[in-house]
């Protein structure tokens, strides 16, 4: 049977959105996210909550191979969001990434156009853990001074990809990082360097 969506669609979506908004507005700040969803594996509750909160018929969604290989995941997302699924990461408004270590290069997603940089892809990554106070060095809008954050696992050369993403500002992709029960943001405006 199809897994249910939010128990309280209005307020659960609002709580999820506010957590994501705070996370993107304050990179390096990890917000709690406990959506209470039990989506079909390998979709995580956090990925499902963000998909249910932000996607609909207007937003093509790209699924990474582990998610795309599970037909229940596509059925779950189609039923609860109505979002069209796409195979082309460059056409996706949102990309759900279950296996961040094998995430395609960020350059393969839509960066937006100079006149409309908002037509870019937002990646939602399901990480194992996000630790603050160590790891990557973040500066930029939303950050008082500098913060450190260690998302794991990450693909090889990820910091270099983020640097290229930042160099193209205002073009670029935005990242929403999730881990069990937590969410953090890495918008394109953030400068990321190795510690």
């Amino acid at each position: 049977m199809l897994a249910p969506g939010f128990a309280d669609p209005v307020h659960d979506a609002q709580a999820t959105f506010r957590a994501v908004m705070e996370a993107l507005a304050r990179p390096g700040l990890v917000r709690p996210l406990a959506p209470g969803l039990q989506p079909p594996a390998p979709l995580t509750p956090e990925l499902a909550a963000i998909a249910l909160t932000l996607t609909d018929a207007d937003t093509p969604v790209w699924l990474d191979p582990p998610l795309a290989e599970a037909p229940e995941v596509a059925a779950y997302l189609r039923f609860h969001t109505g979002a069209p699924l796409t195979d082309d990461p460059a056409r996706a408004a949102f990309a759900l990434v279950r296996d961040p270590a094998r995430c395609p290069p960020l350059g393969r997603f839509a960066p937006g156009t100079p006149a409309y940089p908002d037509t870019s892809t937002t990646l939602v990554l399901a990480l194992d853990a996000i630790t603050v106070g160590e790891g990557l060095h973040l500066t930029g809008p939303g950050i008082r001074g500098a913060v450190r954050m260690a998302p794991t696992p990450l693909p090889d050369g990820f910091v270099g990809q983020l640097a290229a993403n930042r160099a193209d500002f205002p073009l670029g992709v935005d990242l929403i990082l999730t881990a069990p029960g937590r969410v953090a943001g890495l918008p394109r405006s953030t400068t990321v360097t190795e510690a």
Binding site: F17, A93, R188
Partner: peptide, 13 residues
């Protein structure tokens, strides 16, 4: 949802 997506883009840029 539509407004929330716009807000997130606005924050990112």
């Amino acid at each position: 949802r539509m407004i929330r997506r716009a807000i997130l883009k606005g924050i990112a840029v």
